[in-house]
Nucleic acid binder design. Structure first.
Lengths: 363, 363
DNA sequence: CTGAAAGCGCTTACAG
DNA sequence: CTGAAAGCGCTTACAG
């Protein structure tokens, strides 16, 4: 590959040693059908010549591109880059390249993005679906990273458990009236987090309420205030957002209103986004183990690729090896829930009853 | 490609119509050497059969993979995803796939990342270098996105001009003592922004000072306070960070100290990161035209790929067409500076002399 | 306007 | 242990 090949190919190496390409190929791929000394000489020559194997040749012959696709609903959203990074790393370790396909926030474009990947011949793909995506027609092994409540097998953080962790944390700090802040009531991730949160609390002793930002913004426009000062007046002492993004919004709105965090009220987030440790006060949040998630997704994908009738064979009469693969396969073996981890920082603190009014002490 | 090919190939289409593969190929690639009616029938058959061309076959024959590489120092840093998204989009429009290579913040890994891309046979690559990266050895066309002060031709936002815009904005609001906040004094992007900022101001009437977070953190640990309340006491009325990330850190630290923004002091950032419009007060910032930057990079890359001895030819005796390409080429024709745009929001406001002391009014 | 043939670089099953 | 040969799917230059 590479526009007009520069380096040598197997034939050149073979010629320069006066041997056959088959032997060179065998030596370089370490199949062990070559004497140790010759293999050594071959490797040395290849290195000296700066040999880089042609992926195109290999792909055409083996029917495998060595490339995985990563389908993301919107890379520019703060959580996805971390996923992309972890996937790229796991894939590289497993010897795969990663082709990205971003649907830029547009749900309809996800199918197109998947199609582009298929046309590029990916061996499999990791999909982070947006609600409403049909993943039916990929025609290759697919690993889905989503929430456990998505139908079918997925790997994901255990958002429900994460919600429980935060809820317990706030309960143990003494909070009894907690506002949950979500962006979109159609998001299953957010609903899982909220569901877990509520499930950890005894509704008779602790009151919770959910504020959906989308509804507010429909009325008041994007970037509008969330009316948290009013909520403080109503006695809410903790604000648990389903994302650090919204936690940050809550934090600054409260601060701007002169309400001290965590002295008067507590704020918590989700995801441990990049700025969360450095804002003041630093955000208490829940971190997902993205490395583990990526590992599970890639491992499942790779083993599906390898099991699905491996390399083509090319002898007449052994067509059995070329049976068509089952088109689309969700390859995560079981619904995998990777635990989330509570990260306690300064934005959450013990309830102080005397201070639930507007106040503006300096720390 | 795709582990074990499922769909039909040109041969199958040709057979089903009783014609030759050459004709099918010509019809499908629209080279126009086929009668209109036959071409139509061929396209219909291809569609009916669900034909997807094999990238591997095409790549092997043409010497072109149709894939570009994107080398990023750290995808999980908030600005890079936007770049990745824009590059992916421009590349897709131009008919290219994008393989990502992330060096996860480790400068040394960048060369490895580039090497991985070369091994995958990319036709060219876009590199966003980290200071200290040598881009010498890619062996294929390379477009560099960086700052104009980088040696060699690059495409980038005009960080210097962006700095000037912010400086003028603050000057026009009446600020006369401004603290610039940077992370790393080795970053040429940050230095360009700061240089531009200072260049727009008359140093005799407006005092500026640069605070480098890295130095503070060396002493006080990561996430430490920036001591901005002290700076306010010293008479600084505006805090201009070289990134929204640091602006956010400044904003929350000031708010936490009971200093109202923008009533008492102004805060500005850079980059218009995703949360900047929704914090309270929303951040005044500078936005780069990432779409334009990506467009320039991809256009340059694609034309370099096409000019660098296009498709291989295969007749004996015309070896001239296979002249090796000049190994590594920086393909941006001239140092391109894409203007940045000021986005005025609520975090900056007119200087109010009476209020530069600690205060905590509610809005 | 259409077709036959070559060959990109590789890997594999088989023969020696 | 080593080699000769086939063939993955495509595109191109040439012949008809």
């Amino acid at each position: 590959m590479g526009s007009a090949r520069l380096g040598p190919n197997l034939t050149r190496i073979a010629a320069s040693l006066g041997i056959s390409v088959a032997t060179v190929s065998n030596a370089l791929s370490g199949k062990g059908r070559v004497s140790v000394e010759l293999a050594e000489r071959i490797r040395a020559t290849a290195a000296a010549l700066g040999y880089v194997p042609s992926q195109a040749g290999r792909a055409l012959r083996t029917g495998r591109s060595g490339v995985l696709g990563l389908v993301l609903p919107d890379i520019s959203n703060p959580l996805f880059p971390q996923i992309a990074q972890a996937i790229e790393h796991s894939a590289a370790v497993a010897g795969y390249g990663v082709l990205i396909a971003d649907s830029r926030g547009d749900i309809g474009m996800q199918s197109e993005a998947i199609q582009r990947l298929v046309e590029r011949g990916v061996d499999g793909m990791v999909i982070v679906p947006r609600r409403g995506t049909r993943i039916a027609d990929a025609g290759c092994p697919v690993a889905v990273i989503d929430t456990p409540s998505t139908p079918g097998n997925t790997v994901s953080a255990d958002h429900w458990q994460g919600g429980r962790e935060i809820a317990r944390h706030l309960r143990n700090l003494g909070h009894r009236k907690i506002l949950l802040i979500g962006a979109s009531s159609a998001s299953s991730v957010q609903n899982d987090r909220i569901g877990g949160f509520k499930s950890a609390l005894d509704a008779t002793t602790i009151k919770t309420e959910v504020l959906w930002i989308e509804k507010l913004e429909e009325r008041d426009g994007p970037g509008c205030l969330l009316g948290l000062a009013d909520k403080v007046q109503q006695g809410f002492t903790a604000f648990a957002a389903v994302s650090d993004l919204h936690a940050l919004r809550a934090l600054t709105e409260l601060q701007r209103a002169g309400i001290a965090v965590p002295d008067s009220v507590s704020v918590t987030g989700f995801d441990d986004l990049i700025w969360s440790p450095v804002v003041t006060p630093a955000l208490t949040t829940i971190r997902m183990d993205i490395t583990a998630i990526a590992e599970i997704a890639i491992t499942a994908l790779v083993s599906a690729i390898n099991n699905g009738k491996p390399i083509k064979t090319m002898r007449p009469g052994d067509a059995s090896a070329d049976e068509p693969l089952p088109g689309n396969r969700l390859v995560i073996a079981e619904k995998s829930r990777v635990p989330m981890q509570l990260v306690v920082r300064q934005s959450s603190g013990p309830l102080r009853l005397a201070k639930t009014k507007l106040s503006a002490e300096n720390s």
